[in-house]
């Protein structure tokens, strides 16, 4: 009864407490996520930037000194910077276009145009590498490309007259990009498949009656209708490829030779965490990582602007019937 009376009174004019409660509700609900974002996303960036302006390393742990932009200046002066930046660009663009978007599109189109069960089975199988621990997956690639005369690739290709070779050394980029791409393609494959399946059947039927062949249907109807999912995968995968390095680390560790397949994220890792003992340069590594953050933010803003992401979030682009 007491609460009923309270509600009754609150109707003409809410009490101060009521007003605080209603206006604070959104903040209370947002709080857990806000705290998480602050602790695990925002704070690390601030810390990284702070560390990048110090000389922190194993050798200097006792006396960390603020050195301003010296780490960045050192980066600019390094003769490897351009090489590694080029490597990163090549790695991201090639993997993205050939596999994470290209192959993903081909896979999702193929598996939605064949028998449904076979398609689902195929997609499930393609997900296996993603749910396999990275180390095991990398190990499989190492065995597949094992030194001549061993290795499945060599066994497979020798009947065709291709001389056995150490593929990991001969074509390091090919191996790195394929290993990443096969896993990366599964993300786009799933997004594209669900997008293709959500296209109302009538559009496809209409296109068939209008005279479109399978390829024309894909070009004129399906692809335009899944434009937004494609842009989403493109954006998301650019960012995740920029920061990914674990397969490269496990497969070539940036080699063979000097920095042949070293990408920016791996370089930061090498500098900060995997140098020889006594020369683990936290400060310099943090500076490298900070640059990556900046590149990521710029890329995000560009994508947001160019592809008008707000519209993508605002309303579904596949129109309901």
């Amino acid at each position: 009864m007491a609460t009923e009376a309270a509600i009754y009174k609150a109707v003409p004019r809410p009490s101060l407490w009521e007003r605080i409660r209603t206006s604070s509700a959104p903040w209370v609900f947002m709080a857990p996520a806000t705290v998480m974002i602050f602790l695990f996303f925002f704070l690390p960036v601030v810390l990284t930037i702070y560390i990048s302006m110090t000389n922190m390393s194993v050798a200097t742990f006792g006396k960390v000194v603020f050195i301003g932009l010296q780490n960045y200046i050192r980066m600019l002066k390094s003769r490897w910077t351009v090489k590694i930046l080029t490597n990163t660009g090549f790695y991201v663009l090639t993997t993205l276009s050939c596999f994470n978007v290209g192959l993903a599109l081909i896979l999702s189109l193929l598996t939605t145009h064949i028998n449904e069960r076979v398609g689902t089975l195929f997609r499930t199988l393609w997900l296996l590498p993603r749910i396999t621990p990275s180390v095991i997956y990398a190990l499989l690639w190492i065995w597949v490309t094992a030194d001549a005369p061993y290795g499945i690739v060599n066994q497979f290709l020798s009947p065709f007259g291709i001389e056995p070779r150490n593929w990991m050394n001969a074509q390091p980029w090919l191996v790195v990009i394929m290993a990443n791409g096969f896993v990366g393609a599964s993300f786009g494959m799933i997004i594209f498949t669900s997008a293709i399946k959500s296209i109302p059947e009538d559009y496809i039927r209409a296109a068939m009656v209008d005279g479109a062949s399978t390829l024309q249907r894909i070009r004129y109807v399906i692809l335009p209708m899944i434009r937004w999912p494609i842009l989403f995968v493109l954006t998301y995968q650019t960012l995740s490829l920029l920061t990914s390095f674990e397969y490269i680390l496990l497969l070539t560790d940036g080699g063979p030779g000097f920095y042949r397949t070293e990408v920016w994220a791996l370089h930061a890792y090498h500098r900060a965490l995997s140098n020889y003992f006594g020369n683990v340069q936290f400060g310099y590594g943090a500076a490298l990582a900070a640059v990556l953050v900046v590149i990521g933010i710029i890329a995000s803003i560009l994508y947001l602007r160019v592809f008008r992401f707000n519209e993508l979030v605002a309303e579904p682009k596949i129109e309901a019937l």
């Binding site: 109302p200 009538d202 009656v209 005279g211 109807v221």
Partner: peptide
């Protein structure tokens, strides 16, 4: 014969106009 070779026109309940 495939639909495209049947010389037919079709109108759907949903209209199925290509939105793009």
């Amino acid at each position: 014969l495939l639909p495209k070779d049947r010389d037919i026109g079709m109108v759907f309940q949903s209209y199925a106009l290509y939105p793009h």
